[in-house]
Design a protein around this nucleic acid. Structure first.
Length: 931
DNA sequence: GCTCTGGCTTA
DNA sequence: GTAAGCCAGAGCC
């Protein structure tokens, strides 16, 4: 049939609107919650009013031929039978909503609108079945705020979703579904299954959200196809999917809307009848819906009347409220017994209680994630599960000064343990108000990290994992992105419930996690003796900050700018045109298509233009060398030289990084915003950037102390290899010694030493002939030969590595010398590259992790000494094997020795017995000189 | 505005 | 070959 003929026929079809009753009622309830509509006698009416208006709005806007409302049944559904946890977390609806629902169920039929309900089924299934039944004869519009219905969309079936802000509707066909959710309706169920649905308690694959789910579905087409190609995925996604296979099948079943219920109805049965005004008008009178009543009186079917007049909203807020009817309180939800405190008397009472405790959990609410900019809005406290208090000290009767004055002695009391999630943040916020929080009794984020570093450790995930609790998210309070509102705009009680929940959950988590730690003594000690005490040390370092000489960078920026202009001109001349050198895509088009240079490797999206490719090309094509130069200069300029000055905090004139204690799977710290652990050093021009890192003032210098060859020493210690231990004991240059041994010569050339150095590093990273060959640009056969020489000379290194792998295969984890654990999956994978990657991680982790434990221990010792001796010098940075200090001139004779001693002492403390540890110290007027 | 990719910096 | 974080571009919203 031609388009012309089908189109008018299509238009002739009657329209049928299927309304998801319960979901729309819920929406009305929450949309009108703040209006607090109620009758003079206190009966709540917002949800009723909103829902009727939704129906009228549809009738007026679309003039439907058929309009049907479907409701869920109260009985358990077949979904509950198949999956007992289905919707298990969902709190009972608020009682004031239930009251209103009763009225709605009377009003809808009285309006003459067909209303359907079936025991054991949800509204979704009724709508799905009617859709299937009538889609050939009608144009269907599914009216619902629930995205799950997108699975039903196809030709002639569209979704009509109430818009977020106004009372308009958004129409979703297949294309709109795709553009809004990322997949087409046919694939929608697979995507839903991957994401799961926390409100229905359907798990999905942990860590896979809407974005990733849509991406995966688009890349592979379906869940089944994703599982066929698991090995291509990143480890986190892969592991999540492996664990979730059964859950996904189950979730997909639960989220499938039934389309084959036994519903015996004809189009005639669904015709709308005239409204029963004898019933409706008195009821509207009772509910005080005056404009609505007027509309029905005059002409219930008329379309040109004004929609929802505000008149109905005008009466009854405030003045005439029945004092016994407490609207806001009637929301039991899943919340505990939470109390909002906003006056001094209540605060004093709370303080007295807190002061008598051995420990409690707390959490601060602020205006910013950047601690130096964060204003304190309130603090929540919990000392019994399910119970919490929120001290609101902004824009209220209780001033921040009063709150701080009363709480400071308690927060600083060394006898009262502090429990919390990411306490470093709270400590830094409170530091701005002169409060030095101590001691860290338990940090739930760090405990989770120590128990299993590869997991995520945010509070919401921890609550879900360990307590089975669905928490209120911060975004639920203030929204997200553009429309995010200020925390000051949140109702104090709402904010209080959120804040209280966080303290409450932290306390409950502490109980669960502490028990888990109790089953592993070393992990418990790592928490209590390493990670928890380190929190305060890191907070101090971040707070202290590093001074930056902006003038140095400004000069450097100008030099780099000139150089970049010069180099890019040369490249453009060679290319015959100007283009964006920062775009790998454009660059590869120029190089490999226009200039026809030989392509070496491919990436996912095109030809690779990375260092290795360009270096290879540089031998024959000078332009490649110029591009490499451009790249390195541009990197330095954009990432460091131009970016760092903007990060100098206006209040302190210094740079304040964040040291993340819960990210690196091996136990290392990481640094971000900005990352001060990857400031350049290798190239001459890069090193100049370090010249901008300077002491705080003329009375200070920088002191740098770094462990020499720490990871190789640890490998020697852990393996007990006598040759390598001997080399270190004799203070030999380890790379030269290795060269001597593997090349069997006393005349070690520079090149031999370079190769030996690579091999030594290779050992730490889980050496493989292939990798070494690549790295040294030699054949795999040569690489194999070198490795076998190494094995012969340092036999115990290799037997140690084999032992690690055996143990890991048997137990599923590897450990540092202190007993810090990391679980390693995939050691038995049939896929070579996956298995090899797992083996390399297994080998590297004990070595890298032991070094991390050691320097953490050293930092604690140093911080303690500085405190005890009331020194004026400060530790300011940690770069994995190096510590940097802002050293006061009066302490130049004690600090270097103190630092060196503590760093060496730390090695002993974590159990290093056989290998000597060397620490190199240096001082200077900037980081280049000190290092 | 958000997320991913390629590329590059450190230990 | 291990462990991280950040930048610009690109693609989608």
């Amino acid at each position: 049939m031609s388009e012309q003929l089908s189109q008018p026929a299509e238009r002739q079809k009657p329209s049928m609107f299927l309304l998801d009753g319960m979901a729309l009622v819920f929406r009305s309830y929450y949309a009108l919650m703040s209006a607090r509509m109620q009758t003079q006698s206190g009966f709540p009416t917002g949800a009723i009013y909103g829902f009727i208006n939704t129906i009228l709005k549809i009738e007026e806007t679309y003039r439907p031929d058929f309009l049907v409302v479907a409701f869920d049944s109260k009985e358990k559904t077949f979904r509950h039978e198949a999956f007992p946890d289905y919707k298990a977390q969902r709190p009972a609806p608020p009682t004031d909503l239930i009251q209103q629902l009763g009225k709605i169920l009377e009003i809808v039929p009285a309006m003459g609108i067909p209303m359907l309900k079936r025991p054991g089924f949800e509204a979704d299934d009724i709508i799905g079945t009617l859709t299937k039944k009538f889609e050939d004869r009608c144009n269907l519009f599914l009216v619902t705020p629930d995205k799950d219905f997108a699975q039903l969309v196809h030709d002639g079936v569209k979704l009509l979703k109430p818009a977020r802000q106004n009372d308009e509707f958004l129409l979703y066909g297949a294309e709109e579904v795709k553009s809004h959710y990322g997949v087409y309706p046919e694939q929608f169920l697979d995507m839903l299954a991957l994401m799961g649905d926390s409100s229905d308690n359907i798990p999905g694959a942990p860590g896979i959200g809407p974005k990733t789910a849509a991406n995966l579905i688009n890349r592979y087409g379906s869940i089944a196809k994703i599982y066929e190609n698991l090995y291509e995925l990143r480890p986190r996604a892969r592991e999540s999917l492996l664990k979730s296979k059964a859950a996904l099948e189950n979730g997909r079943f639960l989220m499938t809307i039934k389309t084959d219920m036994d519903i015996d109805l004809t189009l005639d049965d669904l015709k709308q009848k005239s409204p029963d005004l004898d019933f409706l008008l008195p009821l509207f009178e009772e509910l005080e819906f005056r404009t609505l009543a007027a509309r029905f009186k005059s002409s219930p079917e008329k379309k040109n009347e004004q929609a929802a007049s505000d008149a109905d909203l005008e009466f009854n807020f405030g003045a005439n409220v029945d004092p016994n009817f407490q609207f806001a309180k009637k929301q039991p939800r899943d919340l505990g017994n939470y109390t909002l405190i906003q006056d001094e008397d209540d605060l004093n009472q709370l303080a007295e209680k807190l002061g008598s405790l051995k420990e409690f959990a707390f959490d601060t609410e602020t205006t910013s994630l950047t601690t130096l900019d964060a204003e304190l809005v309130g603090i929540s406290f919990s000392f019994a599960p399910g119970e919490a208090f929120f001290v609101y000290c902004a824009e209220s009767a209780l001033s921040r000064e009063t709150a701080i004055r009363v709480l400071k002695p308690i927060l600083e009391n060394p006898e009262i343990g502090k429990i919390g999630q990411n306490l470093k943040y709270d400590m830094l916020v409170l530091k701005n108000y002169g409060v030095r929080v101590q001691p860290v009794r338990f940090d739930t984020m760090l405990a989770s990290y120590v128990l299993n570093p590869d997991k995520t450790h945010n509070l919401d995930d921890l609550a879900a994992d360990h307590l089975g609790l669905e928490t209120v998210k911060y975004a639920d309070l203030v929204g997200k992105g553009k429309s995010e509102k200020s925390i000051y705009e949140v109702e104090p009680k709402t904010l209080s419930d959120y804040a209280c929940q966080d303290a409450d959950v932290a306390l409950q988590l502490k109980n669960v996690l502490e028990k888990a730690l109790g089953e592993n003594e070393p992990l418990k000690k790592i928490c209590e003796e390493l990670e928890f005490p380190l929190v305060g040390v890191l907070a101090d370092m971040e707070h202290e900050g590093v001074r930056l000489d902006v003038a140095v960078l400004k000069t450097l920026s100008e030099t780099l700018g000139t150089e970049l202009g010069r180099v890019s001109k040369i490249i453009y001349d060679a290319a015959g045109e100007a283009f964006n050198l920062d775009s790998p895509k454009q660059l590869s088009e120029i190089l490999f298509e226009k200039l026809k240079l030989p392509a070496k490797r491919r990436t996912k999206t095109g030809y690779s233009t990375d260092v290795r490719v360009l270096e290879e090309l540089a031998e024959s094509f000078p332009v490649a060398k110029q591009i490499l130069e451009y790249r390195s200069l541009q990197k330095l300029k954009s990432t460091y030289v131009d970016a760092l000055p903007n990060l100098v905090h206006p209040k302190t004139g210094r740079i304040h990084t964040s040291f993340n204690q819960h990210i690196a799977a091996t136990g290392r710290l990481s640094s971000s915003n900005p990352n001060l652990q990857n400031i350049p050093i290798r190239t001459e021009i890069g090193r100049e950037i370090r010249g901008a890192f300077v002491p705080s003032d003329a009375h200070h210098t920088l002191l740098s102390a770094d462990y020499s060859q720490i990871e190789l020493r640890i490998a020697a210690e852990l393996s007990g290899d006598p040759t390598m231990l001997g080399a270190f004991q004799n203070r030999e240059d380890i790379h030269s010694t290795t060269a001597k041994l593997i090349f069997e010569t006393d005349e070690v050339t520079k090149d031999m030493r370079r190769k030996a150095k690579e091999v030594n590093f290779g050992v730490l990273y889980g050496i493989m002939p292939f990798g070494l060959a690549q790295r040294l640009d030699i054949s795999q056969a040569e690489a194999k030969e070198i490795i076998s020489q190494y094995k012969e000379k340092y036999p115990m290194i290799f037997s140690y590595l084999e032992g690690i792998l055996d143990k890991a295969r048997a137990s599923g984890y590897v450990e540092t010398l202190l007993g810090r654990r990391r679980y390693i999956r995939d050691l038995n994978s049939k896929n070579f590259s996956i298995r090899s990657a797992a083996e390399r991680a297994a080998i590297n982790t004990p070595i890298q992790g032991t070094a991390a434990d050691m320097i953490k221990k050293a930092m604690l010792g140093i911080a303690s000494d500085i405190h005890k001796q009331s020194l004026r010098s400060r530790m300011i940075l940690q770069v994995h094997d190096e510590l940097l200090f802002n050293m006061h001139e009066s302490e130049v004779d004690i600090l270097p020795e103190l630092v060196q001693r503590e760093m060496i002492e730390a090695a002993k403390a974590i159990g290093i017995r056989n290998v000597p540890i060397e620490v190199e110290v240096g001082t200077g007027a900037n980081w280049i000189e000190a290092h």
